[in-house]
């Protein structure tokens, strides 16, 4: 459990709420919060830490990332990130562009190798983890479609590969695809080409692809980016349902927005360090105003200058 660190920002309306964690099963308040800057301070005892991370039921956390250091293209992006996601917990990973959110997620799924640090998935060290069917991944949506047409059903079916592997695609696989498509309200578009879908519909297809394997850990990178209101509601419903059945959820978000009520814990990154780990931060500039569900269709040309997420 990473310490709830004192805030660096002077934003008047940011209240980090230190130590008053309302997250259901967070570890006891840390003793050593003297480090003024972020989480480069190493955890003293990793074994005690692991015990604290375990959920009450004794299940190991779905994700346990410790002091992760990683670089992309020679540039250091993560400088010692701690991240824990337990079964049934919805964790939001927040931060400005370039703070290391997406890289953290890519490190968790093994897309970015760790230079230093330790990663466990469901209690298994990453190196010996093979149970990929337990993970459902929704990548950041790209507008570039493949060079050849593909139907919604074909794309969603690729999420079933960990189940049928080299065996033929059987009736129960097909039924799982139907269920996942129904869950996102896209069953009637199953035979349509993905190239003709809107942004929100495309996002729903990618979510269905992650759900089709009935994962125990759902990882979504910017699921709300460029998504219409109807799809936002679909997404919120799905997240609530998945968390209820015990699925661990890790969301990369640009801001909390309409998903805020679902989120148990927020981890805020700044410059590749954890700046906050606890209840979702209140009051981050105008984005915290009630009813504000500002969605960034193109997040990269937008920089906040105020607040915790700056």
């Amino acid at each position: 459990m990473s310490p709830v660190l004192p805030e660096r920002t002077t934003a008047p309306d940011s209240s980090p709420a230190p130590e008053a964690t309302t997250a259901p099963d967070s570890s006891p308040a840390p003793e050593a919060t003297t480090a003024p800057e972020a989480a480069t301070a190493p955890d003293a005892t990793t074994t005690a830490d692991a015990a604290a991370d375990a959920a009450p039921g004794g299940q190991p956390p779905a994700v346990r990332l410790r002091e992760a250091v990683a670089s992309v293209g020679g540039r250091p992006v993560l400088r010692g990130v701690d991240l824990t996601v337990r079964p049934g917990e919805v964790v939001a990973l927040l931060g400005a562009n370039g703070s290391g959110k997406s890289t953290t997620v890519k490190a968790v799924i093994g897309g970015v190798p760790l230079d230093r640090g330790h990663l466990e998935l469901f209690g298994t060290p990453y190196r010996s983890f093979r149970d990929w069917r337990r993970i459902g991944y929704v990548p950041q949506r790209t507008t570039a479609a493949g060079g050849v047409p593909a139907t919604v059903r074909e794309v969603v079916s690729t999420g079933r590969l960990p189940q049928h592997r080299l065996l033929p695609f059987r009736r129960r696989d097909r039924a799982a695809v139907d269920r996942a498509l129904a869950a996102v309200g896209m069953l009637d578009r199953a035979e349509d080409g993905v190239a003709g879908l809107s942004g929100g519909q495309h996002q729903r297809v990618l979510i269905a692809r992650a759900l089709v394997g009935e994962p125990d850990l759902l990882i979504m990178d910017e699921p709300m980016a460029g998504v219409d209101v109807a799809s936002q509601q679909v997404l919120a419903d799905i997240l609530g349902r998945e968390a209820e059945r015990g699925c661990a959820v890790l969301l990369v978000l640009h801001e909390l927005g309409p998903l805020e009520p679902l989120i148990d814990r927020a981890v805020v990154l700044r410059d590749g360090c954890v700046a906050h780990d606890g209840p979702p931060p209140q009051g981050v500039g105008q984005h915290a105003l009630p009813g504000h569900d500002h969605v960034h269709p193109h997040a990269d040309d937008h920089t906040h200058t105020r607040g915790l997420l700056a």
Binding site: G110, W132, R133, G146, T158, L161, P162, R165, F169
Partner: peptide, 21 residues
């Protein structure tokens, strides 16, 4: 024979990696 696997890596390589193929 490997149509589904090859389709997956050509459609979305990053996702295909997470499926463990």
């Amino acid at each position: 024979g490997l149509r589904r696997q090859l389709f997956a890596i050509c459609q979305d390589e990053e996702f295909a990696r997470v499926t463990g193929i």
